[in-house]
């Protein structure tokens, strides 16, 4: 039976083209030399082909990151589309590397490529997972830290999506505050 519907041949296009980056901390190289573009995709099928092909975050070495950003936005504060923005930041405990890290990262990716935040998805620039000895971090970056409504929509829906307990607060920090901080903590502009 060769007759099939066209849907079986056409990949499902995403709203945006996305770029997946990998950062490996090699102290003999510069920060930008350590940041590598892995691949870009713009369909559901191509996303899974890539996702299924690469290591889960929990298998990465300390100091490594994955970054998923909309095509054209570099995963760094200095990019024009990031510099006025900030991030919803989740800091995970050491135990959560085993229990939650990979699951949270996959949910984060699905939120981004599926445009889960409705109109607020336009504010999303990308997401980052940092694998660190003290505790891993996952963040969603948005383009303008003054866009309160969009940021709160993203934060509330994201927290719900990850089934974070209501009592556990997650915070949003501007990149300006993060980059200029002197101590180990950055103040939250918003929290949910």
């Amino acid at each position: 039976t060769a007759v099939t519907s066209p849907e079986q041949y056409i990949k499902h296009p995403l709203q945006h083209r996305w770029a997946l980056w990998y950062f490996k901390n090699d102290k003999s190289k510069s920060w930008t030399e350590n940041l590598r573009l892995i691949s870009k995709f713009d369909t559901v099928e191509d996303f899974w082909a890539l996702y299924n092909h690469i290591q889960q975050p929990s298998k990465l070495g300390f100091g490594c990151d994955y970054c998923l950003f909309k095509d054209g936005i570099k995963p760094m504060w200095e990019d024009d589309r990031n510099k006025l923005g900030g991030r919803w930041l989740m800091t995970l405990s050491k135990q959560q590397r085993h229990n939650d890290l990979d699951r949270y990262w996959m949910e984060t990716l699905l939120c981004l490529i599926g445009e889960s935040f409705d109109e607020a998805s336009e504010d999303v620039c990308g997401a980052v997972v940092n694998v660190r000895p003290k505790g891993d971090k996952i963040s969603i970056w948005t383009g303008n830290c003054q866009n309160r409504d969009a940021i709160m929509t993203i934060g509330q829906q994201y927290k719900e999506r990850l089934s974070i307990p209501i009592k556990t607060l997650i915070g949003y920090q501007s990149h300006d505050d993060t980059s200029s901080k002197s101590g180990s903590t950055t103040k939250n502009m918003y929290s949910v």
């Binding site: 499902h12 995403l14 559901v44 099928e45 299924n52 699905l110 599926g114 445009e115 998805s121």
Partner: peptide, 20 residues
């Protein structure tokens, strides 16, 4: 309109054979 895909829809494609 915006191309939105919910979680279950996206997950449904994770282990599909690659398309042409």
């Amino acid at each position: 309109g915006k191309r939105q895909y919910d979680r279950d829809f996206l997950l449904g494609f994770q282990f599909m054979p690659a398309c042409v």
